[in-house]
Simulated assay, not measured.
Amino acid sequence: MTQEAKRLRRKEGISAGLMLSPSLILLLITSIYPFFWLFRYVLYDYNGFVAYFTGLDNIKRAFTDVVFWQSVLHTFEYAICKLIIVIPLSLLLAVIIHKNIPGSKGFKMIFFLPTVISASIYALIFTFIFAVFKGPLNTVLQSMHLISAPIDWLGDAKWVMTSVIIVAVWGGVGNYMIYFLSGLSSVSSEVYESCMIDGANARQTFFKITLPMLSPILKVILLLAITTAFKDYQSIMVLTGGGPNNRSQVMFLYIYQLIFGSTSSFNIQIGYATVLSIIAAVIIGAVTVIYNKFAKKLDDVM
């Protein structure tokens, strides 16, 4: 390599570094520094002002915290139920809208609308819908004689998880529908025409052509849906605050309440919340690793 070539390569490297530096600085300030900042308080009782060294007490407490481990189970329940509903529903809507039925653009906008609305806003809307007395949902169900008395959707432990899952599905279905639509748009119409000529019915076309062709984007959508479901807490915080009796408490809502204080207790525990954050990150990491192994086998199935 000549001196001139080396000089040009060095100049290109400096230019690339300068262009990347704003993003790297932002990443350092907003992600990397806070991560290590929290780590130093693992062994402290820290309330945001004063830190007291407690040794391994936070770690010991984490493994005996019944509420936290209940929240882990609730998180898995919430995530699994949400995924079972939202992924097939998003795919079904995408397939229907992709057929360019009359009014499909309007339906696309309606289903995508929750994605551009803050989770706290649509959670407030559903708080009104789920109201016990004169709430729209109870009023409609009673008028149809499906229930004899109003249901406390957000205050009854039997119904609260169902309610928050309904809100989660409504808030996420449009987003994943758009992802599926982008995947469907990449499938050539000639493939479907060939299937019709060969006499394939709609079911055979969907399972033999559409799903295999969507395999690459399906794996990405599933990964996004899994990680998002495990990190959800905003809408639950507005709807129930984790109640009643912690029935709708999930991991990151519990951690949030420890860091910023809950409505029932203003005892801020940043040190202990840091330990729980690490445990939650390990749990999500383990789920992601398991999914990645599953995704590799998905190629063989498809």
Rank of each mutant, 00 (worst) to 15 (best):
Tyr291Asp: 02
Leu38Asp: 14
Ser120Ile: 13
Val116Ser: 12
Pro102Ile: 00
Leu91His: 07
Tyr254His: 03
Ala5Val: 14
Asp299Cys: 08
Gly171Pro: 07
Asp57Ala: 15
Val86Leu: 02
Lys134Thr: 15
Ala79Glu: 05
Thr288His: 00
Met213Glu: 12
Leu92Met: 15
Glu12Tyr: 10
Ser163Lys: 02
Ile59Trp: 11
Met196Phe: 09
Thr205Met: 08
Gln3Glu: 15
Tyr33Cys: 07
Gly242Gln: 01
Gly174Thr: 06
Ile166Cys: 10
Ile259Ser: 08
Pro102Val: 00
Leu253Glu: 01
Met251Pro: 09
Ile117Thr: 13
Ser185Tyr: 05
Leu27His: 15
Ile147Asp: 02
Ile29His: 02
Ser215Gly: 11
Thr227Trp: 04
Leu214His: 03
Met1Leu: 11
Thr2Asp: 15
Leu124Asp: 15
Ile129Pro: 11
Ala123Thr: 12
Gly242Tyr: 05
Trp153Cys: 02
Tyr41Met: 01
Leu38Ile: 13
Leu239Pro: 02
Trp69His: 08
His74Leu: 12
Ser248Arg: 02
Leu211Lys: 03
Met161Pro: 04
Met196Cys: 10
Leu184Arg: 00
Met196Ala: 13
Gly171Ile: 00
Val160Arg: 00
Trp170Phe: 08
Asn47Arg: 10
Leu222Asp: 05
Leu184Phe: 09
Ile97Asn: 06
Leu18Gln: 12
Tyr46Asp: 04
Ile270Leu: 05
Ser188Gln: 03
Asp300Phe: 14
Arg203Val: 11
Val132Ser: 04
Phe133Lys: 14
Gln249Glu: 14
Ala119Met: 13
Lys99Phe: 13
Ile165Ser: 06
Val67Ile: 15
Ser248Trp: 00
Ala225Asn: 04
Lys296Arg: 13
Val282Arg: 03
Thr210Arg: 08
Gly135Pro: 09
Tyr78Thr: 05
Ile284Cys: 05
Pro216Trp: 05
Met196Glu: 11
Val167Arg: 03
